[in-house]
Structure formats: structure tokens, C-alpha cells
Amino acid sequence: MIRTQDRTESMWDSVDVGAGPAEQPIAFGGDLAPQNLLAAYRRGLYPFPVDTAEAAIVNELTYEAEVEAGRVKTVPGCADPFSISWWSPDPRPVILVDQARIQRSLRQQLRNRTDWTTTADACFEEVVRQCRVGRVQRWLTDELLRGLCLLHRQGHAHSVEVWDGDELIGGTFGIRAGAVFSADSQFTLRSGAGKTAVADLTRRFAEAGGLAIDVQRDGDHARLVGARPLPRSRYLDLLATRDENRPLATHKLPAGRLAD
């Protein structure tokens, strides 16, 4: 009997992530079941599903020739393969935890926010739901939300929360793939709260033996939270590094400690 995990792993055997396109999808198809999500993240991929049939048609019109030429792969799974794309940019924006630095402006802000605290895994689903509020296009689809929540229950997906008293004001979430944490998204309801969540995640993950926080998409925001471009080959090496597998600390801590 072939186990589900074995079938999932073998499904990705045809996808050479290291040789895939740098600035467009590497593959289409598959599904967002937890075992498939985890297998993809461990290979350096992350999903970008679409939430409308029209968006899937745009994907097909844009990338059909690349798929037919074999430059972009398809994997079995969903009825419309163009409804889920899988990405692995080159270079990859990454925070190396042993080189992480917090912006001076954020440190100054945290010193004045004595009532801010942070936790991990206190309200994972709420953090994910907050991360998709007002987003167009909504890549955090209901199906992806379900898959992420199942991964959280299995201990692979985690959230960090930022609190002002009892009020949730910011957070981030993602999937732990060995020595790398792939941070999918963040939200902020108060200035600096989202960046505080990423800084707290970086500190907690370093203390758990992690090596890097992957923020997936490069840009001004990625640079503001301390990410720097890393060649995809180096990123894949980090994924293959032996993980110390120490648990992520989840208890409440003062956000101000991040300013030290």
C-alpha cells in the first residue's frame, strides 16, 4: 500500500525547483491539502491560489505557452490546474536570524510601548483571517485557510501575535520547513505592530534553532523587516540543513525586549 505522504512527495518529483523560472510560477495544479502544502514548502515552493474563475483564466492565457513548452510544470490535483500556482523566486528574500537587526525607529517605538506583548500560537486562525481582510486578490482562499489550520493542528504552521493589553493589534503566520520558517503574510492594526510580529518570530525561531525567515516576495516591505535577497540555490541549501527541531516558545513576552 502506498501511503498518502509517499504519493504527495512523489507528485513533486517532476518539478526541479532549482532549475525553475525565477520570476514566474514554477508549477500549476496540485491541491491545498495539508500534506501537499507541507511537501511543497519543504521543497522551496509556496502556493498562490486564485479565488475566481476569471483569475484562473488570466493565468491560463498568460502561462499556457510556458506550460505547453514544459518550462512550467503541471502536477495532478485540482480540476482546473490554473487555479493554483506554485512559486519559488530567485533570489529569495530571507532574514538570516543570526544577522537580524531591528530598525532604529522600531526599537524606539517599542521602548515607548510598555503595554505591548507578544505570544505565539495563541489564535492562529484569527491571525490568518486578519491577514486576508481587504486583500484583493484574495490568495488566502477558504481552501488554503483550511489547509493551513490543519497544518497548525499538526504542529507545522505557527502564528505570532502582538497585543495591546487584551487587544490583538498585529500578527504574522507561516509554515516551519526544517531550519527555515516561511512567513506567508502579516497584518497590522497599529503602526509598527506587523513589523514587531516579524521581529518576535525571528527571535523565537532563532531560540528554537532555526536559521532563516523566508518572507517569499521581495520589495520595499521585505527590506523594511530586514529581509535581503538570497540566491535560490542558497535558500534550498538552508532547507536541506538539519533541523534541531526545538519547539517554538509560545508564552507571553514583553514586546519591549526586542528593543534590547
Rank of each mutant, 00 (worst) to 15 (best):
A53S: 14
R129F: 02
G192N: 14
R232P: 05
L106K: 07
I169L: 05
A255K: 09
A100V: 04
V128I: 08
E23S: 07
L110Q: 14
A120N: 00
F181Q: 06
A69C: 04
S233L: 06
A222Q: 05
A222R: 05
P25S: 06
G226Y: 00
F124E: 02
S191C: 11
Y235G: 00
F124H: 08
S14M: 14
T141N: 03
E60P: 02
G178T: 06
D16A: 11
D51Y: 03
L189M: 10
D200S: 10
I84T: 01
Q130W: 03
T117F: 11
V133H: 07
S105T: 09
V198F: 06
L32F: 15
C131I: 15
V160K: 01
P34I: 02
R228Q: 11
E143C: 14
L211F: 05
V136Y: 03
V97A: 04
V133W: 11
T74Q: 15
L37C: 07
L144W: 03
H152Q: 10
E207I: 04
W86V: 08
R92K: 14
W87G: 05
A22S: 10
C131W: 10
R3F: 12
R217K: 14
A255F: 07
L37I: 08
Q103N: 13
V127T: 00
E64M: 07
L248S: 04
R146Q: 09
T4M: 11
V133G: 09
S88H: 13
